[in-house]
Design a protein around this nucleic acid. Structure first.
Length: 476
RNA sequence: CGGGGUAUAGCAAAGUUGGCUAUUGCGCUCGGUUUGGGACCGAGAGGCCGCAGGUUCGAGUCCUGCUACCCCGACCA
């Protein structure tokens, strides 16, 4: 097994190394696509299960729509098609014949779903319509990177329709806080949230809200989004209902999603120079047991003791992996499971056996403690919770330490070059100004904050007086 | 889409001005010694040298064409 470069040497190489050495994914034979290997997919399954639970808790039902979208449907909403057309894969042939109408492989499902929604929604009694789909989508991006941006990716996309704008706005906020809570409580991932600037808004939406996480190299990642679609699509797809007064009205819609990118986010936000560091909730193995022995007698004694411990942990609902391989040395196993980010390692050898104890090592801090065997299993769930909190705390501290403030363009660039992270600044520019500042600084407005400057300031770009606070960052 | 690379065993690479049987490390198989931080020794197995042409007595090496992937930008969840 090869070694990992450090994060500071070459973050990109470090990232690719983690994905490979942790055995999460590999390049497929198709450009920009990846094979998600069992270890990576198991992480996704934990994310899916918990997110799905939270989605259903909000009264949203799962369903499934086709992979193919007739081109005419995609074209129905002008700004949407303009936003997605360049990255669409199109099928022109089927059954040996040229298709009458090309089929677009979904880059997202708004158009194909909303065409059908218009048939489902007639009355205010049909609202709100709350649905979600777990699916794959294809976006033929120029540049790809495992998990963070792949040509095909997996996600969940929620789509809702409401009678009033207020209802829809509440849903946008609900979905965003669902993501924020999920990130914090399940993934130990602190995020900044807020609205997107006009340039960064979803194609066809009134506004887009976002959760933004900070990677260890100072770049940020959009981890989840929640859009207020307003009536744009309702008008394009004629989704109307009769209200209590018998009047026909267009519905108000939202959509929101989280993708396999969240796995990449975990890697870059929690990982260290030794490799992946997984929050306990998503770790395929929360605990690995590593036996150490020389003689047959020692082997038998250690294995049987660990086997009991393994059963006890399983009974407590802990995902435990007993690494009984005798083809590799304990030292090899230590390193292997560290690269794979397993939160807790328990080692036991003849010395421990004599003391009736075991050595427990935490992945996130490297802290080693010797614990008595009696009652050890019962302590593990608590330790896993502590690891979650400690990971969240250090990520939170890292995030807070990387929020800076700039009043001039030079300051902004200096901070981004030297430190990275988010930079608060005053903003009164146009969408065109956003493009210009991106060209100059390689940074984009990640979030337009709810906060306002207490006293009006000069816009960092145009110099106009404003109380608008934005967060700039360089992003993945 | 622009710029730059690469293509040789499962992986990573070397291969000289064309030359004789295709090299090295990791991994794999077998045997033995090991095992508390990525073990060691010995013996083995494994190749359409990306594809298609061409030059030549002879091509992994030179020429032409093709294909694929990677990296860096612009685009994006």
């Amino acid at each position: 097994m090869s070694k990992l470069p450090t994060q500071t040497q070459d973050f990109s190489a470090w990232y690719n190394g983690v994905v490979e050495l942790a055995d999460m994914a590999e390049h497929s034979c198709v450009k920009g696509c990846m094979v998600i290997k069992p270890y990576g997919y198991a992480i996704w399954e934990h994310i899916q299960r918990e997110l799905d639970r939270r989605i259903k808790e909000a009264g949203v039902q799962n369903l499934y729509f086709p992979l193919f979208i007739p081109q005419s449907l995609l074209k129905r909403e002008a700004s949407h098609v303009e936003g997605f057309a360049p990255e669409c894969a199109v099928v022109t042939h089927g059954g040996g014949k040229l298709l009458a109408e090309p089929l677009v492989i979904r880059p997202t499902s708004e158009t194909i779903m909303y065409d059908t929604f218009s048939k489902w929604i007639h009355s205010y009694r049909d609202l709100p319509l709350l649905i979600n789909q777990w699916a794959n989508v294809v976006r033929w991006e120029m540049r790809t990177r495992p998990f963070l941006r792949t040509t095909e990716f997996l996600w969940q996309e929620g789509h809702t329709a409401h009678a009033t704008r207020e209802d829809a706005e509440r849903e946008v906020a609900r979905a965003l806080s669902m993501y924020t809570d999920f990130d914090r409580d399940f993934l130990a991932l602190p995020v900044l949230t807020g609205k997107k600037s006009p340039k960064e808004t979803f194609a066809g939406a009134d506004y887009t809200t976002t959760t933004e996480a900070l990677a260890k190299d100072g770049k940020v990642i959009q981890a989840g989004t929640s859009h207020l679609l307003g009536q744009t699509f309702a008008k394009a797809f004629d989704i109307t209902f009769q209200d209590e007064k018998g009047e026909n009205q267009y519905v108000w819609q939202t959509s929101w999603g989280v993708s396999t990118r969240i796995i990449g986010t975990l890697i870059v936000c929690h990982g260290d120079d030794k490799g992946l560091v997984l929050p306990p909730n998503v770790a395929p193995h929360q605990v690995v047991l590593i036996p150490i022995y020389k003689t047959d007698e020692e082997k038998e004694a250690v294995l049987s003791t660990l086997s009991t411990l393994s059963d006890d942990l399983k009974a407590l609902g802990v995902r435990v992996h007993f690494d009984k391989r005798d083809t590799v040395s304990p030292g090899f196993k230590f390193n292997e499971w560290e690269v794979k980010g397993v939160p807790v390692r328990i080692e036991m050898g003849p010395r421990d056996l004599k003391e009736e104890s075991a050595v427990l090592v935490r992945r996130n801090t490297g802290e080693k403690v010797t614990l008595k065997l009696a009652g050890l299993a019962r302590k593990v769930p608590e330790i896993l919770k502590e690891i979650h909190s400690s990971m969240l705390m250090s990520a939170q501290k890292y995030l807070e330490d990387h929020i800076s403030e700039a009043e001039t363009l030079e300051e902004l660039v200096k901070i981004l070059d030297e430190k990275g992270g988010f930079v608060r600044a005053a903003w009164a520019g146009s969408e065109a100004d956003e493009k210009l500042i991106q060209e100059k600084t390689k940074a984009t407005i990640r979030i337009v904050s709810e906060d306002k400057w207490p006293k009006k300031r000069k816009c960092i770009f145009t110099g106009k007086e404003t109380d608008t606070v934005v967060y700039f960052a360089r992003a993945y």
